[in-house]
Amino acid sequence: MKRNCMECDLPISGREDKKFCCDGCRNAFNNRMNRDSTNMMRNVNNKLRKNYRILSELNAEGKTRIAQEKLLHKGFELHYITHILTTKTGKTYRFVYNQGYMITDDNQLELVRRET
């Protein structure tokens, strides 16, 4: 049975279950198939990285308190977080990886670093 590459349509030789003639065709095919979601995911990951850098810079000591405006002025986007942690006392911290923050009643942010 003659098989052709799913990307370039050239004949394939080798294993029976082989779908591509070379690694270049396999990579090109997969990049093309994943292009739409990759752009969206790349944008979200870039925003998460930026938020993480901002929190790390402002929270060098592991626990600090700052004005919310200072965080926003540096370009932090509050909607881009990795997870939420609610403590036993009912406090809710929003995290970007291991850097977290809690908005206090007086619009201050309590920044924390969670050790893994």
Rank of each mutant, 00 (worst) to 15 (best):
F20N: 02
M40I: 14
H79V: 08
L85S: 06
N107S: 13
V44F: 02
D106H: 06
L111M: 02
T87S: 09
E16L: 15
T87C: 01
F20Q: 05
I54T: 04
N45P: 02
S37L: 12
I81C: 11
K47M: 08
R42S: 14
K18R: 06
E110N: 03
F29E: 03
M40K: 14
Y97S: 08
L72F: 11
E110R: 03
H83E: 05
A28W: 00
E61D: 14
R65V: 13
H73D: 15
H83P: 00
D105N: 14
K63S: 08
Y93T: 06
N30F: 02
E77C: 01
I84N: 00
Q108G: 07
R94S: 10
T64Q: 01
L55K: 09
L58W: 07
Q99Y: 13
T38M: 05
R94P: 00
N45L: 15
K74F: 12
N34K: 05
K88D: 03
E16Y: 08
E16G: 14
K63Y: 07
G90Q: 02
L55D: 08
N27W: 00
D105K: 09
Q99V: 00
H73V: 03
R49F: 08
L85H: 12
K74V: 05
N39D: 10
N46H: 15
N34Q: 04
